[in-house]
């Protein structure tokens, strides 16, 4: 087996590959991310950036209390975020637990959202603590129900105990299952990996194993998609591209609640991975509350007045 010619599937080759990565200096990465956060963008670009951010949102509901009604409402909003303004683009995907995939797919199709994907969180989300047959079954369930994107979690326990090959093999197996049916996003739960060195290592591990996207977090653990973590992951996809000519996507999820945060993310993308990544096929933002703030900012740009939450729909 060869994975981009980087790893041959053995523990040794994986360890050599991960061992060749340079470290990340936390203070330096924090400083770079903070500096980029001071960039302000042009008004015309800001309007574009808001629409781009909307189209990158994976509109998410991942609650024990999710119901068919809640998911249907979410899907309607995903297709037409602002029913009064049809120039607002649809979001990138809705993101649900896999028992809601069929409901979401059906409702999206019903409201004209054939172009909006359904992402299912998988492999015993959010903890990843289940046996491999269960994880495979979990994923197959989601695929069969119509998921076009699989957001799997890695086994952080295996990662932290140094069993990288186990993490690698899980990703390989899930990727194989996804085949051409679904894109694979690999969630690290960076809040549990803690160090940027680990984030970088996990990024390169997941990319070599076949991830289409690397994703920061489940949204269940803080800290989640902090700017420096996203910076480190964007550096990883940039470097992976120069090694393999393959562009891997990045999805920050958790903690991005307003337009300012979202635009800072786009600045990070532009400055780090480059403008080629400024597309929903290579950058997604996992969020729920963010969408309404983006809509309010959009209204403000159109009218010149600060908007009120009364004019945007609640989920």
């Amino acid at each position: 087996m060869s994975f981009y010619g980087l790893v041959d599937g053995t523990d040794t080759s994986l360890k050599n590959y991960l061992g060749s990565l340079s470290g990340v200096d936390q203070v330096g990465a924090d400083a770079r991310a903070a500096m980029l956060a001071t960039r302000s963008i042009k008004t015309t670009s800001k309007r574009w950036a808001i629409d781009m951010a909307i189209s990158m949102v994976d509109l998410t509901t991942l609650e024990g209390a999710d119901t068919v009604g809640k998911v249907q409402a979410l899907c309607t909003k995903a297709v037409r975020p602002d029913p009064t303004d049809l120039t607002v683009p649809s979001v990138g995907a809705v993101c649900v637990y896999n028992d809601m995939v069929a409901t979401a797919r059906k409702h999206l199709d019903l409201v004209g959202g054939q172009h909006v994907g359904v992402a299912a969180v998988s492999t015993a989300f959010p903890s990843g603590r289940a046996s491999m047959p269960v994880k495979l079954r979990d994923t197959r369930d989601a695929l069969d129900a119509g998921a076009s994107e699989i957001d799997m979690v890695i086994d952080r326990g295996a990662f932290l105990s140094g069993h990288y090959i186990d993490v690698f093999n899980e990703i390989v197996a899930i990727k194989e299952l996804c085949g051409t049916r679904a894109h694979l996003k690999v969630i690290f739960e960076t809040g549990e990996l803690v160090t940027y060195d680990n984030v970088r290592k996990a990024s390169f591990l997941a990319m070599a194993a076949g991830a289409d996207f690397i994703k920061t977090s489940t949204g269940k653990i803080a800290p989640a998609a902090t700017a420096p973590v996203v910076l480190v992951m964007l550096e990883a996809v940039r470097d992976f591209y120069s090694m393999t000519q393959q562009r891997i996507g990045v999805k920050p999820a958790g903690g991005i609640r307003n337009t300012k945060d979202a635009i800072k993310q786009l600045v990070l993308v532009n400055e780090t991975a480059g403008p080629e990544w400024l597309t929903p096929s290579l950058f997604r933002i996992g969020a729920s509350a963010l969408l309404n703030d983006l809509l309010m900012q959009r209204m403000k740009m159109d009218t010149g007045y600060y908007a009120s939450p009364a004019y945007v729909t609640i989920d």
Binding site: I41, T44, W48, A49, N270, P275
Partner: peptide, 13 residues
């Protein structure tokens, strides 16, 4: 969606 030629930063004097 159309991608603008560049992601311009504002002149924020």
């Amino acid at each position: 969606m159309e991608t603008p030629v560049s992601f311009d930063y504002a002149s924020a004097p």
